[in-house]
């Protein structure tokens, strides 16, 4: 897997600065620079990697991007409508199969979805499992108090227990979030950003908004590159410790400076556009052709969505 990475490993190495005088915990605030630099590198790496996956010839890559966008939107909407855990599990399994047949490495996919979602959503829902937050039918008593304790707004019952309702709600939320995130990740990882943006027209999003999105994505790389340079320049001049106050002032200065560069860049880009005959209305060139297989795919997605909804509403 790692050899498929676009950025070579030596470029991604996390350098931990062992600067003189930086050992004392209170002043080791060079960390904020490395974190920012690492975040920028990771962003670039992720983007290059998705481009690689998008170039492969899997199931989803061969579809018309408009059909793919519509189907993913439809499936996310269906996922939001389910009331039971069973159809959500089926949906998740189906999405995993889709990922596999599109050449997305399952280890990466599960890492992106099934480590992030349970970590984030799991922590969020954890308190709601107990009858302290929501009363319900106890399933497993964690510990017993001598009598219920009332703290202003919160009443802790004598038997602190995990409730059936809490478990059901947590399962619903984690499965729902998992399926939605999987679908969104699958869409973006199998479609090149430019193609995806052009396909947004199918959702009736105005061309001007798409043009802004498109340009914005391009300039993110330039601004990140500039930020990278500014952080690196500061870091390479750093010989001692940096007080938190100075560090905050430095980050704010970088932001202010970047804003100056941003406006100057905006003016230059505008001039360049005018010189190339820009009149104020964006024109998009797209050569999408909806093939027969795309229509079959859309029909298949509708059938899957409707039958899963049927399972959810009629059978269960």
């Amino acid at each position: 897997m790692s050899e498929r990475r676009a950025v070579p490993p030596w470029l991604q190495e996390k350098i931990s600065a062992s600067l003189p005088g930086a050992e004392r915990r209170r002043f080791t605030h060079v960390g904020f620079m490395e974190k920012t630099l690492n975040a920028i590198t990771k962003f670039m790496d992720d983007q290059l990697f998705s481009e690689q996956i998008a170039k492969e010839r899997g199931l989803l890559q061969t579809l018309d991007p408009r059909a793919k966008l519509l189907s993913v939107f439809l499936l996310i909407l269906t996922t939001a409508l389910f009331h039971h855990a069973f159809p959500l599990i089926l949906m998740n399994l189906w999405v995993l199969w889709l990922a596999k047949s599109s050449g997305v490495p399952l280890s990466l996919f599960t890492k992106r979805v099934w480590i992030v979602v349970p970590l984030f959503t799991g922590i969020v829902v954890l308190p709601s499992l107990f009858n302290v937050v929501r009363p319900g039918t106890p399933v497993w008593t964690v510990f017993r108090l001598e009598h219920p304790v009332t703290l202003r707004y919160l009443t802790i019952p004598a038997d602190v227990a995990v409730t059936r309702e809490g478990l059901a709600a947590a399962a619903l939320l984690v499965l729902r979030a998992g399926a939605s995130v999987s679908l969104a990740v699958l869409l973006t990882i199998t479609t090149r950003w430019n193609t995806l943006l052009k396909a947004l027209e199918v959702l009736c999003i105005p061309a001007i908004f798409i043009a802004v999105l498109d340009m914005s994505y391009r300039y993110i790389f330039l601004l990140l590159h500039t930020s990278n340079d500014m952080f690196l320049a500061r870091k390479s001049r750093l010989t001692g410790r940096l007080r938190p106050k100075e560090a905050r002032r430095f980050v704010a200065s970088v932001m202010g400076n970047l804003w100056g560069k941003t406006t100057a860049l905006g003016t230059e880009v505008h001039g360049a556009m005018l010189a190339r005959g820009y009149t104020g209305t964006p024109k998009s060139v797209s050569h999408f052709v909806m093939k027969g297989s795309d229509k079959v795919w859309l029909a298949l997605v509708c059938v899957v969505a409707l039958s899963l909804l049927g399972v959810d509403r009629v059978i269960l």
């Binding site: 904020f32 920012t36 975040a39 001007i208 498109d214 391009r218 930020s227 980050v251 860049l265």
Partner: peptide, 21 residues
């Protein structure tokens, strides 16, 4: 409009990535 909003949005995205101690 387009270049200014686009680069403004890129700026907004970029500063969200900065870590502040």
């Amino acid at each position: 409009y387009i270049p200014l909003m686009a680069i403004g949005a890129a700026f907004s995205f970029t500063i969200m990535m900065y870590n502040v101690p």
